Amino acid sequence: GKMTGIVKWFNADKGFGFITPDDGSKDVFVHFSAIQNDGYKSSDEGQKVSFTIESGAKGPAAGNVTSL
């Protein structure tokens, strides 16, 4: 299901970062391709987002990331 969290950091040059879930669980990796914004796929530190957890090649990753 959908979770909410805060972007801990995001490196636009490398195209990835981490989200800290609101439920206190482990930080989740986020790749720019998962960000659902139109246009520039980046996110700012401290941005509140909703997301799903997908199982990626390197473990859990955020999917369907949407700014709230």
Rank of each mutant, 00 (worst) to 15 (best):
G1R: 11
G1Q: 13
G1A: 11
M3F: 11
M3I: 10
T4K: 06
I6G: 02
I6L: 06
V7R: 00
V7T: 01
V7I: 15
V7P: 01
W9V: 03
N11I: 02
N11D: 12
N11W: 09
N11M: 02
N11R: 06
A12V: 12
A12Y: 13
A12I: 13
A12F: 12
K14Q: 07
G15M: 04
G15K: 05
G15E: 04
G15V: 04
F16D: 00
G17Y: 08
G17S: 01
F18D: 01
I19H: 02
I19K: 00
T20R: 13
T20A: 10
P21Y: 06
D22P: 00
D22I: 05
D22C: 14
D23G: 05
D23S: 06
G24C: 08
S25N: 06
S25H: 06
S25F: 04
K26N: 10
K26H: 09
K26T: 10
V28M: 03
V28G: 00
F29S: 00
F29W: 07
F29T: 00
F29R: 00
F29N: 01
V30K: 00
V30A: 00
V30H: 02
H31F: 08
H31V: 04
F32G: 07
S33R: 05
S33M: 07
A34L: 01
I35P: 02
I35Y: 13
I35D: 03
Q36R: 08
Q36C: 14
Q36A: 11
N37T: 13
N37W: 14
G39E: 09
G39H: 10
Y40V: 11
K41I: 12
K41Y: 12
S42F: 15
S42P: 11
S42V: 14
S42E: 09
S43A: 15
S43C: 15
S43M: 15
S43W: 15
E45C: 14
G46Q: 08
G46A: 07
Q47T: 13
K48H: 13
K48F: 08
V49D: 03
V49W: 04
V49C: 06
S50A: 09
S50E: 09
S50Y: 08
F51H: 01
F51I: 04
T52N: 07
T52I: 11
T52F: 08
T52G: 02
I53W: 07
I53P: 01
E54T: 13
E54W: 10
E54N: 09
E54C: 13
S55P: 12
S55Q: 14
G56C: 10
G56Q: 11
G56E: 07
G59F: 07
G59K: 05
A62D: 01
G63E: 08
N64I: 05
N64Q: 08
N64S: 07
V65G: 01
V65A: 03
V65Y: 00
V65C: 06
V65T: 00
T66A: 08
T66C: 10
S67Q: 12
